[in-house]
């Protein structure tokens, strides 16, 4: 299934309902938008992620949090890109909210108070990427042992581990 060429930029995508809704909520929070391979991605600022997700939930625009994950673009800065996959069961649509995080200070507000589903996903990211979530009720390692050193999914962590 060949896809149409990607569309990028907030201006080109401001007619899409999700982008329009977020722009209407807080235009300064939306940094960038992209529509690629039938998937809509919206970049928001680090400070506004919980607000944006709370807004989308309270307006009934999205009603399910599918996934929270992260990717490490080391050695580029800002190094981490958080990805929140939201789903609207009503409209049968998905949207991905992304936040860029710097390597020196990978701190972001937790969305667990809004979506309890994010609890385990955020703990996993804390464990494997070392991203810290403010306001998370129980931020502890989940996969690795408590006394483990380092964060295995970071790109500067060797695949074979430290011997």
């Amino acid at each position: 299934m060949p896809f149409a060429a990607p569309i990028s930029g907030v201006d080109q995508l401001k007619d899409r309902p999700m982008v329009a809704a977020l722009l209407g909520w807080n235009a300064s929070a939306v940094q960038d938008a992209r529509f690629d391979r039938d998937e809509l991605t919206i970049y928001v600022t680090r400070e506004s992620i919980r607000g944006a997700i709370e807004f989308l939930k309270s307006q009934g625009i999205t009603d399910f949090l599918s996934d929270v994950t992260c990717a490490d673009y080391y050695p580029r800065e800002p190094r981490f890109e958080m990805a929140y996959h939201l789903l609207s069961i009503k409209n049968k649509q998905r949207v991905r909210l992304k936040v860029r995080l710097s390597g020196e200070d990978p701190v972001i507000e937790s969305v667990t108070p809004v979506w309890p589903a994010a609890n385990f996903f955020e703990r996993e990211l804390f464990d494997l990427f070392g991203v810290r979530f403010l306001g998370h009720p129980y931020l502890r390692r989940i996969m690795m042992p408590e006394d483990w050193q380092g964060h295995p999914l970071r790109k500067d962590y060797p695949v074979e581990g430290y011997r």
């Binding site: 502890r140 390692r141 989940i142 408590e146 006394d147």
Partner: peptide, 9 residues
């Protein structure tokens, strides 16, 4: 996997 070093949570 807090079973190695710390007591039950």
């Amino acid at each position: 996997m807090g079973h190695l070093s710390s007591p039950p949570v």
